[in-house]
Simulated scan of single mutants.
Amino acid sequence: MENGLNTVRQLRYLPALGAAYGVEVLSFAGLRAMDTRHRRVQPQRPDFHVFALVGSGTGTHEADFHSYRLREGGVVWIRPGMVHRWSDIDDCDGPLVLFQPGFLPGLTASEAAAPACWHLDRQRLSLALLAAEHLDREHSTAVRTPRLASPALLAHLLAALVLRTLPDTPPATDARRSGSRHTDVFRTYRATVEEHFTDWHQVADYARALGYDVRTLTRATRAATGAGAKTFLDQRILLEAKRLLAHTDLPVSSCARRLGFRDTGNFTTFFRRQAGTPPAAWRTAYTGSGGPGETGPRSTAPPRPRS
């Protein structure tokens, strides 16, 4: 997203010296101290996860066309590829955990189902902050005393933190009870969608490539996300379409080509069906309104990617 209406910074995971374990613990205060030029308020797209707890204070942030208010007990989970900005975190404090994709592969299904931001009650927040403190202490020890470093321990502590904070989910359905097989199938489907969504627009394409039938992919995706495989795929294409329209000045026809549509008419029909308005009208409304208009429980920080 180099040329655009709002240039998006591409953030790469670059850990601090001596902290190359695939995970790093910062804080809102530390982020503000590092980011003296306030680049955090500009759109950015990280290639890593940011998992943050708001221990105190209030603020706002935006991610993928939603604006969210932050307050005590807030949890923020920015996944790789999200376009976001910290609109206002001057009064927020709490831990920020940065970690690389694949560091917690077993949580893929939970990650897909979780929102970008939600809220914890005081008791759960207290437990989550303790878990984050434990992770921070082990990480600091690993940096100071490499002989005591244990990436596996850091991964377990991060998993405990995420599991402690994940929002409540509905009671398990029969599909969820089948457990690991559905998780593995969805994980494979999701990774393949990420790789091929600009070329393959039908679930049957993925079924053939992965050796599953369409019903298997649909059941696994619904178990993980609550939506079917086709809806999951269409929403991924739509999200990328919105990113292109909002953050580049590419004409609609070029956006269509980048997303694998043979002609602009097909892309316009798809976008109108999914978003309720044609792509050009959506872009005009978005840029004219100055950005996200939805508010609710979603963002990321520049980690140590240094500019």
Rank of each mutant, 00 (worst) to 15 (best):
C117D: 13
L259P: 05
R262E: 10
A155Q: 11
S254P: 00
R176L: 11
T183D: 15
G296S: 09
P297S: 14
I78N: 05
T295H: 12
E195T: 11
T141L: 13
L98N: 08
T295R: 11
D47G: 03
Y21I: 01
Q10K: 09
L245R: 07
G260F: 11
G59A: 06
V25C: 12
Q274F: 01
C255Y: 03
L217N: 13
T192P: 02
V76W: 02
I78F: 07
G265T: 06
A280P: 02
P151Y: 02
R215C: 06
D234A: 14
T284H: 15
K230L: 12
A16E: 08
G106P: 03
H134K: 13
L259C: 04
W200S: 04
A285T: 14
Q235V: 07
P46W: 03
T284D: 15
R222T: 12
L120I: 09
G30K: 03
T108K: 08
M1S: 08
A229E: 12
A227Q: 15
R122L: 08
P46F: 00
T231P: 03
S140I: 06
L148P: 00
V25K: 02
P171A: 14
G260E: 12
T7W: 04
G276K: 02
D184C: 03
G226L: 03
R85P: 05
A172P: 14
A20D: 10
S140R: 13
T277D: 07
A224V: 06
P115C: 09
A227C: 12
D47E: 02
